[in-house]
Design a protein around this nucleic acid. Structure first.
Lengths: 323, 323
DNA sequence: TTGTAAGCGTTATCAC
DNA sequence: GTGATAACGCTTACAA
């Protein structure tokens, strides 16, 4: 054919339809009433020319938003391995999606920060990931932090880790347990809060060690500990996956759960490795995600958002019993 | 103070620094040489005014790109539960990130399509998710499909599912297995290819059923089947997670693996549920991700990209033995 | 090395 | 309900 086809613009469509640029714009956006007949004329013209709708980059500039929300998750393969992360992210994505916005994954590596984000969520990510935070503040990008800690200028969505662990501790104490050990997550806000909660009931709880929410890691940690035949009657873990690992390891060593050893977790996620119901603290994961997305949307609109701390619920299962 | 602070623009900075707009732009982008002294002057002026760098939305419009690549993954919580998905996504994100681009999650729900994406990756997602495809073609958005099937106008990154399963089948045949059954994934390109590969060696393989790559699902499927005390000597699964489920279920029913029953998988991912090394077909997951990202970047540059089919490798573990 | 000027393709404000 | 016009804030030929 003949030469380069210049990109089609709304002006071309307007011309072809014999209407003004602004009318054509309205025909597409519907932001103001347009007579049915002219609107059809515009759409017809667009179809004829092969115009695929208003340029989104131009619209973004004009409206001052990108429609994209970043979510800092540290290393992807780590973050998503945590079964507690998924239902939350799912809810976030869903709520954002129905507002026409998208969720962009920010690794801990690099330059995602050079993208025009309307807001950023900090979730399931370690301390190091916070480096870019100051930059965001400078650029006035709203920030929502999930699972704390509270951060100047950022909105917070959290669950009541501490109360949950207090309840769990009380449950064990009620069953007669007195010598308790704990497996913790790596240093973080949830880790500190959960530990503090447990220690309100068992100040002298023995810390077995810290590890990620990973089955194998928890198993090996528990293995070394149980090998010494300690006299604890219960082990409290800071995640269900850890708890599953401890249960498996205890059984491997001939300990009955909960007969010889009670084991408890945190999160309330499925544990397909086990044939029993774990005693745990159930987080409202989907609600956490929705609350996060709501906070993001409000902050983008410039509204103030109060911090949110969602309640958790103790679920008594089959993994804990009398001391 | 006095009234509304109009947003700071590069023009303000240029004025304050006593240079032209274009010089100020270059001082920030470095796209052309600027004398050290003027560049410092510009940056100083920016710092004084509290200017946080060029508006990214404006830059996007000007350059005709958003810096964002969408990845269609169906339902998040399903997609990321598959351990094979993570290392791949990780690699994609990393490569894109180092090119200054970000990865946006597209759920199967909705309107993420109204975001200005520079390209879209279709991965780990079922058939239904392809609905938006035509729209992308119309808008000339490059598309890269991972794990097939090949699609008109889209680039393809795949692994040689079929050859891998032929090798696996040969391995079992060599061990003397003749009566073989298989657990498949739900209908998809990988599912069909893997099945076809197996049937090149065992045309009469019994299909136990299809299920997601989920431990519990595979366990229950295997349970029903094994209850009938079939005379098969080996079960080939289309994923390692399924294979793990089958192993656990077989043992639960008193069958020794590989003594009474050989079990094989596909993927080459960790199976923390098992204390044996699974015989499986190992995919180069990270490389798959890198190839995908490379294809995306090239397509965005307008280059043509040849389809890629990566080789896989049979790993003989402890889950298969003589018939 | 620096300055001038022309867009990038919309949407929003205002008058008609 | 429709039309003119002014931003939105930047990058990049091209000229000096």
């Amino acid at each position: 054919m003949s030469g380069q086809t210049r990109t089609l613009t709304l002006a071309d469509v307007a011309a072809a339809a014999g209407v003004s640029l602004s009318t054509a714009s309205l025909a597409f956006s519907g932001n103001k009433p347009v007579s049915e007949v002219t609107r059809e004329r515009v759409l017809a013209a667009a179809a004829t020319l092969g115009y695929s709708g208003p340029n989104l980059l131009a619209r973004n500039l004009r409206q001052g938003r990108s429609g994209v929300v970043g979510i800092a998750v540290g290393k992807l393969s780590t973050a998503f391995q945590d079964p507690a992360a998924l239902p939350m992210m799912d809810a976030v994505s869903q709520v954002l999606g129905s507002a026409g916005m998208g969720l962009l994954l920010m690794g801990d590596d690099d330059g995602h920060a050079r993208l025009p984000l309307d807001a950023v969520i900090y979730a399931v990510c370690g301390r190091d990931t916070w480096a870019a935070y100051d930059d965001l503040v400078v650029r006035d990008v709203p920030v929502v932090v999930v699972d704390g800690p509270s951060w100047a200028g950022a909105s917070l969505v959290d669950v009541d880790h501490r109360a949950g662990c207090v309840d769990l501790g009380a449950h064990l104490h009620g069953l007669g347990h007195r010598r308790v050990a704990t497996v913790t997550l790596e240093a973080s806000h949830p880790q500190r809060e959960r530990d503090a909660g447990l220690r309100e009931v068992f100040p002298d709880a023995v810390t077995i060690g810290a590890c990620p929410s990973d089955l194998a890691a928890a198993q090996s940690l528990a293995g070394t500990y149980l090998a010494e035949r300690p006299d604890v009657t219960a082990i409290v873990c800071q995640s269900d996956v850890q708890a599953a690992g401890v249960v498996l390891e205890a059984r491997r060593r001939g300990l009955a759960v909960p007969g010889d050893l009670s084991v408890a977790g945190f999160d309330g996620v499925p544990t397909p490795w086990l044939d029993l119901v774990l005693t745990t603290v159930v987080q409202p994961l989907a609600e956490k995600g929705r609350a996060t997305a709501d906070a993001v949307l409000k902050r983008i609109e410039g509204e103030d958002v109060a911090d949110v701390v969602l309640p958790v619920e103790l679920r008594v299962g089959d993994s804990t019993g009398p001391a």
